[in-house]
Design a protein around this nucleic acid. Structure first.
Lengths: 210, 210
DNA sequence: CTCGCTATTGATAGCGTCTCTCATATCAGA
DNA sequence: TCTGATATGAGAGACGCTATCAATAGCGAG
């Protein structure tokens, strides 16, 4: 797991910059309101008021309330770092190395925003629910990367299965034992989370002896 | 993956029987309407009218529209069959055997209903989204069963990781390569699905050599 | 600079899911 | 049969989200 910063494409026109500012304002006020009074207690109207736009405009920037949290420029794994690993590394070893590299590259500010996103994803059912498609998408991306590393087809059975096992292992150590008690108190910080993931992947590398 | 039939607890009072009938009527008409005119095109009001209850009563039986599909007495794995496997089998081998047994025990009617549930889960985003919590719950149940088999703690790291890898592998062969194209046309029937899952688990048993 | 084009916006109306309240009707047990 | 508990319907309403339309503001061309 790792994070990427804002896309570097600088908007040029006045219009583009205003749009970017409006978008940032909506997200910023939304996250603040979520933190202050909770996700459910915060309505679109309140967010729109705080960001000084109309409710209709909110939906022009974010298709749903959940997307304010989800569209956060973070990606689960930096695929670039994965591609850059030396080819003699096995798939899982390469993934572990890539994850460690990208964690090290995060700024303190990135970490804080990442942490907030993780917590909201864990706690709010509507947002957590979206993660299933994220998992599927990630499996496919990892499978692509593994296919390139091993010179096999991306839709080959074995390639996809290894990617699936990897994501499953990450799931099992990321989510708590009881879905109903996903409370912020029990949350680990990002560094601890990465450490647990790395330990689980090392175990997977050894063939999961039980 | 496998399925369980209706819980055998016979309701006794007149009230209980009427409640069970109402509940069954709502679900039956809902699934029929979904099939005939699609999930989104079907409103709660239509379902309530067809089942001859008020919309308010609908929500007394099912907290959300999605739950009409999800609360279907099917469980992802028959844990009883897993417990019954001989202790000399490894965790994954035991799971494979349990899955095969339960598939064989399904009636044709069970299979058809199971198939319909799988398709709706795959196609409707709102319903598919719920499956993430199902996956987590299943990981925990499998971890419990594996813990009992191996005489270890249910929240031990290795136990949970193996359960996670198992579910991840199942995910990877169950979901298609592209999330956007989860079309009914591409759906396998239940038997094929079980065959793919078994093949992936066999590969996991061999340590995922890539 | 100015004119027309286009993109962005706010206001409004509306649909559908879901919650809540209250009055009514029905069942269970004494 | 009487009494308390439970199920139901009707209605109002909050909220997320969509669609339409008119007004505004930035854009490029002349």
């Amino acid at each position: 797991m790792t994070a990427m910063s804002e896309p570097a494409a600088r908007p040029v026109g006045l219009r583009e910059r205003k749009k970017a500012r409006t978008r940032a304002a909506i997200r910023q006020h939304a996250l603040r309101l979520f933190r202050e009074q909770g996700y459910y207690a915060t309505t679109i109207e309140q967010i729109a008021d705080a960001a000084e736009v109309s409710p209709a405009t909110f939906f022009r920037y974010f298709p749903t309330k959940e997307d304010v949290v989800l569209q956060d420029d973070f990606d689960v794994i930096s695929l670039a770092a994965l591609e850059a690993q030396p080819p003699e590394l096995g798939p899982i070893a390469a993934f572990r190395a890539a994850a460690a590299e990208t964690l090290a590259a995060l700024t303190a500010d990135d970490l804080a925003r990442f942490q907030e996103t993780i917590e909201l994803t864990a706690v709010i059912p509507e947002i957590r629910a979206r993660s299933i498609d994220e998992f599927v998408r990630t499996i496919n991306q990892i499978a692509d990367a593994f296919a390139r590393r091993t010179g096999r087809g991306a839709d080959e059975f074995e390639v996809r299965t290894v990617a699936g096992a990897l994501i499953g292992v990450i799931m099992s150590v990321t989510v708590p034992a009881n879905t109903d008690t996903w409370a912020p108190e029990a949350m680990l910080d990002v560094a601890d989370l990465f450490a647990r993931i790395d330990r689980a992947l090392e175990y997977l590398q050894r063939g999961l002896p039980l």
